[in-house]
Design a protein around this nucleic acid. Structure first.
Lengths: 193, 193
DNA sequence: CTATAATCGGAGATTATCTCCACTTTCAAA
DNA sequence: TTTGAAAGTGGAGATAATCTCCGATTATAG
């Protein structure tokens, strides 16, 4: 398996303290819809120097990913849980519906995912890859069970999710998102000609 | 009907000359994949002053929209043409397939559309609205003909298109995009329960 | 209690965006 | 033709955001 969080050599005490402070402050700010804050100001508000911020998080996206890493991991866990307790096609439906609902309530996550999915910097997009993986597993199981077609890859579903994330702030986000999921699910059940 | 291009009071000769020079140069640069050029430099390269650039196009997106306005209008025309000559569901399929192919060959348009669709500044997104409209018409016709379900709005299809535009630079863009379209079309044919 | 390696912090260099207004050009009326 | 007012120009420099550098500071192994 690839590198994991737990692989990293332990940070020095002060480094870890600063890193945590940055993430905590960023999470708090994101929760208050402060996304376009000057990057330097994250540092000021978290009580660390600019250099420290840039050392820990070279880009805005890196910070965002750190903030939402747990939340994203939780989503993926839920997918695996559903996968273990339901027929794969039902698990997929339940997961995707829950995904839309969750995003609806967590704007920061939606923004972050939209960026991460678009990012082609493999390291940063670790979160997006995890999501891709659980969806791929669900699709494979369901296809093997014969409940959905087998000629559609997880990437296609990710494109739809990308669209959903990117349109998070539209007035009709919820309606549109639900309908896209409906189309994708119906399309998956419609076995190929 | 709302305001149209032809409504605008005619520009003074020098103003029109500068505006055209800006669009021409921008189109040329976009065609060469120069998207992240300093905004000021568009002006220099087009041989006009910074102020002139900002007066004509207050934002990068406004410039991009002007550059791709015709191309987008052509896409919409094609949709109406198909609508007039084919059963609505076939026209929709043909249009969406063609859309993916066209984007595949026109990165600048893909980038522009991704931005325009995300933009909630109604004036700028005129192009996106036009696209929305032709899709809505196709969906309505097909639904009336009973060839697709009638409980899905154009917004849902736009979300999928948004995802497609946003993932334009993925290595597997083409495969994914084709598959999403397949899912959407299959989903549309699968009448609601 | 060092020695030293890791980390900090923030001044300021760098880069990008956008505004302002003295000057130039157009054009319609005289 | 002039010609005056309105429309438009251009680019220096104000504003703003990003990111780097390195002397000072702090943690930790021995």
């Amino acid at each position: 398996m690839g590198p994991h969080v737990t692989d990293a050599k332990p940070l020095r005490a002060d480094a870890r303290r600063n890193r945590d402070a940055l993430i905590a402050k960023a999470r708090e700010l994101f929760a208050n819809n402060c996304f376009n804050l000057r990057f330097d100001d994250f540092a000021k508000l978290a009580g660390v120097g600019t250099g420290t911020l840039y050392r820990h998080f070279p880009t805005r996206e890196a910070l965002a990913e750190a903030v939402y890493r747990e939340e994203l991991a939780a989503l993926c866990d839920r997918a695996r849980e559903l996968h273990a307790t339901l027929p794969a096609d039902k698990a997929l439906e339940s997961f995707l519906r829950g995904f839309v609902t969750h995003l609806h309530a967590h704007e920061g996550l939606a923004r972050t995912l939209a960026t991460l999915m678009a990012t082609r910097s493999d390291t940063l997009a670790e979160g997006a890859q995890a999501l891709h993986q659980v969806i791929a597993d669900l699709l494979t199981s369901a296809a093997e069970a014969g409940t959905i077609r087998d000629d559609v890859s997880a990437g296609a579903v990710m494109v739809a999710l990308q669209g959903i994330c990117a349109t998070h702030d539209h007035p009709s986000y919820r309606t549109n998102a639900d309908q896209v999921i409906t189309l994708v699910l119906a399309g998956l059940h419609h076995t190929a000609p």
